[in-house]
Amino acid sequence: MDIVLQQLVNGLTLGSVYGLIAIGYTMVYGIIGMINFAHGDVYMVSAYITAIALALLTFFGIESFPIILVGTLFLTVAVTGAYGWVIERIAYRPLRSSSRLSVLISAIGMSLILQNYVQLSQGANQQGVPTLLTGALRFHVGDGFVQITYMKLLILFISILGMGVLTYVIQKTKLGRMCRATQQDRKMASILGIDTDKVISTVFVIGAVMAALAGVLVTLDYGAFDFYVGFIIGIKAFTAAVLGGIGSLPGAMLGGLILGLSEALFAGLISSDYKDVFSFSLLVLILIVRPSGLLGKPEVEKV
């Protein structure tokens, strides 16, 4: 019983991170109908910025954990958001009227450029950050116990906060209304006076900011990363977005949580070697039953 509970806790934290990254995929797909293949690498860049921000803050003698956390979050979110904006300007905007295939190739190219740029600048070796937050809560369950580290609690808290703020922005603010209008019909939104180019740029920045939140949290928790770390987690987050229904914001969060929970439970109870096989099999099964994902709407061909 304690193993199941422990894996549920691990799965929730993992799932919330997948959810944060999946939001970037799903928002970009929702608004331009294309997958941003460079999104995983934006996450990788944010992991490096986290370590750099930590190194700089420590260099300037700051040792208080809350100040380090806020400083790192601020710097990483700002720089990674700028990367999201620039990726849109360089790889997507010039090809807005081109075929979908051109944009796809451009996105893959941008992903490779980011990987090689970071590898050239920072070296190919694995990097790490020191453990900043130690300690855990322990709950006794039967003969065993369930342990939740403070870092995992922080991941859960910041992820839920981030998703909550984003949901509020999309549902209740003028910017969110413009995003939803552009998602529904870009041409009509443009006719009605919405600067759709600016909205698309903003969506890329929002996606990058969510990836940056995930990058800071995962880097502080796991401590190790390299220039290739964005690929695997990007694929997983993309899977989560498809599982929840690509284009749907609650779907991305739900997909992330289901993927994280199923992965953690399978790893804890059956085998950690085949956890990816299990999660991707689950994806295939769900897509057979619901081809548009759990909360996605089937595309209607307009005549």
Partner: peptide, 16 residues
């Protein structure tokens, strides 16, 4: 903003 942190601060263990 883009190149400053990644190119200008090269990580070396926990230092740079």
């Amino acid at each position: 903003v883009l190149f400053g942190p990644i190119v200008g601060v090269v990580l070396d263990g926990y230092n740079f």
